[in-house]
């Protein structure tokens, strides 16, 4: 009894302080997991081919078409299912790309310091200050349509965030004794960076990732809403939302609201997950 008491009390206190964060994290995780499952199971679950007309145009939601059909007679529900694949693939690929580039540049910049660091920091700060979506629009407009071009346009927006975080971490790790020891022993720069510093800065990556990914979802949706994302027949929530707008104003609400809600749901899911995890891991922020 005596031994268990403090433990029980600690758990109860933890629960009292953290239950909101736990609930947020869990809700976010469920939403994200659900949409990932949607993406994975799309070919199995989808009742129709999302690319072709399967029925009359603009049919309201019914038993045959759970979310109705769009202006070309395509099944909205099937397009939503397949659209989750597009958004997930583009968002994950672009975050991975910005993570890779940002980490590499941040590592080099923080490690070598001096003029290189000054210039790189200034460049990254300038990119950071520039409105993200407008930067993505400019790059996407220049690169032209295509999935990989969309990925690149989105990834450029988030490189500075990774850069800043990694650079800051490198600066603090660099002065640690074991790094100085490695330097004193004459280890080459490459070895010190990759073997001694990188493993110690990697833990911040999931934190940055969780903060960025919701934003990247909105940027992806924004780009494709503006017609600068993944090219046309591919099912994509942002594009479908835009596609349904004209008909929405004529009263056909299902073509655009369903994709729109999915975008918001995914962004909320990622935000809840990121926010909840951050609070659980670093309590001093509240």
């Amino acid at each position: 009894m005596r031994l268990i008491d403090p433990l029980a009390r600690a758990i109860r206190r933890y629960w009292r302080v953290k239950r909101v964060d736990l609930a947020l994290t869990l809700t976010g995780a469920i939403i994200v997991a659900w949409i990932i499952a949607m993406a994975a199971l799309a070919p199995v679950v989808a009742p129709y081919d999302p690319y072709v007309s399967v029925d009359d145009v603009l049919l309201p939601p019914s038993r045959e078409h759970l979310m109705g059909t769009d202006n070309l007679g395509r099944d909205v529900f099937s397009r939503i299912l397949y659209g989750s694949r597009t958004v997930m693939a583009v968002v994950l690929a672009s975050t991975m790309l910005s993570m890779g580039v940002g980490t590499l540049v941040g590592l080099v910049s923080g490690y070598f310091g001096g003029l290189v660091d000054r210039v790189l920091s200034l460049v990254m700060d300038s990119i950071y200050a520039f409105p993200g979506l407008i930067l993505a629009i400019a790059v996407a407009a220049m690169l032209g349509p295509g999935v990989s071009n969309t990925v690149v346009s989105i990834s450029i927006v988030y490189i500075p965030t990774y850069f800043r975080m990694i650079r800051g971490q490198v600066l603090s790790v660099k002065s640690q004794l074991y790094v100085e020891a490695a330097t004193a022993l004459g280890a080459p720069h490459k070895v010190i960076m990759l073997k001694y510093i990188l493993p110690n800065v990697i833990p911040v990556l999931p934190v940055v990732f969780s903060m960025n990914v919701a934003d990247a979802v909105l940027t992806e949706a924004g780009l494709s809403f503006l017609g600068l994302g993944v090219p046309a027949p591919t099912p994509d929530w942002g594009f479908d939302l835009r596609n349904g707008q004209r008909n929405l104003l004529a009263g056909y609400w299902w073509g655009s609201t369903f994709p729109g809600f999915m975008i918001v749901l995914l962004a909320v899911g990622f935000s809840l997950l990121g926010e909840g995890l951050n609070e659980l891991i670093s309590p001093e922020r509240r």
């Binding site: 919701a214 909105l218 949706a221 924004g222 809403f225 942002g238 939302l241 835009r242 707008q245 929405l248 655009s256 609201t257 729109g260 809600f261 975008i263 918001v264 962004a267 909320v268 935000s271």
Partner: peptide, 10 residues
Amino acid sequence: SLFIPLLGML
């Protein structure tokens, strides 16, 4: 996270 075009359209 409210996607601007969705809120606007609603």
